[in-house]
Design a protein around this nucleic acid. Sequence first.
DNA 1: ATCCCGAGGG
DNA 2: CCCTCTGGAT
Length: 243
Amino acid sequence: MPPAAPEAPVKPPTSLVRRARKIHRVLAETYPEAGCELDFRTPFELLVATVLSAQTTDRRVNAVTPALFAAYPDAAALAAADRTAVEEIIRSTGFYRAKTDSVLGLSAALVERYDGEVPARLRDLVTLPGVGRKTANVVLGNAFDVPGLTVDTHFARLVRRFEWVDDDVAKDPVKTEHAVGALFPRRDWTMLSHRLIWHGRRRCHARKPACGACPVAHWCPAYGTGPTDPVEAARLVTTQGRA
DNA sequence: ATCCCGAGGG
DNA sequence: CCCTCTGGAT
């Protein structure tokens, strides 16, 4: 019997699909307002804002992007910008030198290779400097209507705790994307990402998850297996678990 | 101290 | 796989 093709698509077991979709349904009810929190008007603005959002909060990015886009409304303008001026505008978002390199570089690449327009394909987006798979999928999912899973640290941690993927898969964002993508219809991918990430930020923290206030504890294989945060859980419960 | 919805480089 | 890049909020 010949060995299976290396990347042959594996159909996930029905029980896993049902378990995963149940959790997604509950998360959708728990976080009805989940979505992209970056302010943007164009794909270009979202692309730049997403690059700036690395290792910072969306709120801090939203505080600087109005000034940034007023001065540099498109790729051509930002590509021609003075580096120091951009650094000053985005300084408060952290990593500002690397981020300035990225946004100037990606703007130049957009002008040179895409006539200043943001491409709506993953394989094009990830060739831009400072744009990785996560950033690319944020732009695809929120600025274009292209479904994409945004596998960030929260997403990876949660799908591991839910045991939607094996531990070795969870360590690899691309494998994670494919494995989780196989559990859900494409149209759910973008909102699934938002809901997982919101849940990761609000309850299912890395160190001490608030399992006592968790809406999906009943379906979580990791429930009761690790350290939890009773104080945070109590706070979330008494505040009606409001996001 | 610790954490933030990352990406690139060695 | 490791490291670095950075300021601000808590």
